[in-house]
Write a protein that binds this DNA or RNA. Structure first.
Length: 208
DNA sequence: TTGCGGATGGACT
DNA sequence: GTCCATCCGCAAC
């Protein structure tokens, strides 16, 4: 099988969560299920540093749930929230230092029929425009906790088309602590960014 | 052992 | 626009 894409090296993930979040925008994420590949471009991500970030799960220290966040960057941190939803994070930084990047929005480019099946919807623009939606569309669950992102099950690549990406930053979403920090990064004007609600076939201006 | 908060999404009005 | 289902990890007792 031809591999036009090159996997991002382990070293890429050892940068800080904040830098990693910015640099992940525009990268391609690939998921292999059985013999099928699902992939998409990351358009939205949030950084969670361990220290001095009360919004981070790792803020209170290492626990069984968060221990992978203290490991070396380049692994998957998957957690379950609100009883219904999985969220997928990429561990950042060096071993011993906590940090992770939450993937919030992805633009589908391959395996779209599988995503529609996983999400049980036909609405293309509603497949992956949110952390829980993305995880479900990509078949992500706790079995991927700690999975190496340079492996085969789920891995990141640099797209062959290396377009210049416009990255905007804002406050993070859905948290109650440390909300002022501008740790959320996203691709401007991309319909798969989660902030804009109610996206239909016709794009209305987001008045808010 | 119990109680509770949470980095959400979907159904419904 | 509003409300609510529903699981896991953690702290307290």
């Amino acid at each position: 099988m031809k591999n036009a894409h090159i996997k991002l090296p382990k070293k890429f993930y050892t940068q800080s969560a904040i830098k990693l979040a910015q640099n992940l925008i525009g990268m391609q994420i690939n998921r292999k299920i059985r013999d099928q590949i699902i992939s998409g471009i990351i358009v939205e991500a949030e950084a969670y540093t361990g220290e001095n970030d009360p919004a981070s799960h790792a803020y209170k220290g290492k626990t069984r749930r968060t221990e992978v966040m203290f490991d070396e960057g380049g692994k998957a941190y998957v957690y379950f929230t609100y009883g219904n939803h999985y969220c997928f994070n990429i561990v950042a930084g060096k071993k011993g230092k906590a940090g992770a990047v939450l993937i919030r929005g992805v633009e589908p480019i391959q395996g779209i029929e599988i995503m529609k099946k996983n999400r049980a919807t036909d609405n293309f623009y509603n497949l992956t425009n949110g952390p829980g939606k993305f995880a479900k569309a990509f078949g992500i669950d706790k079995s991927l906790y700690g999975e190496d992102l340079t492996g085969d099950l789920i891995y990141l690549t640099k797209p062959s088309l290396n377009k210049k990406v416009k990255v905007t930053k804002s406050k993070r979403i859905g948290i109650t602590r440390n909300t002022e920090k501008l740790y959320r990064f996203f691709m401007k004007d991309n319909p798969f960014v989660s902030g804009s609600k109610r996206i239909n076939n016709s794009k209305n201006d987001n008045s808010k």
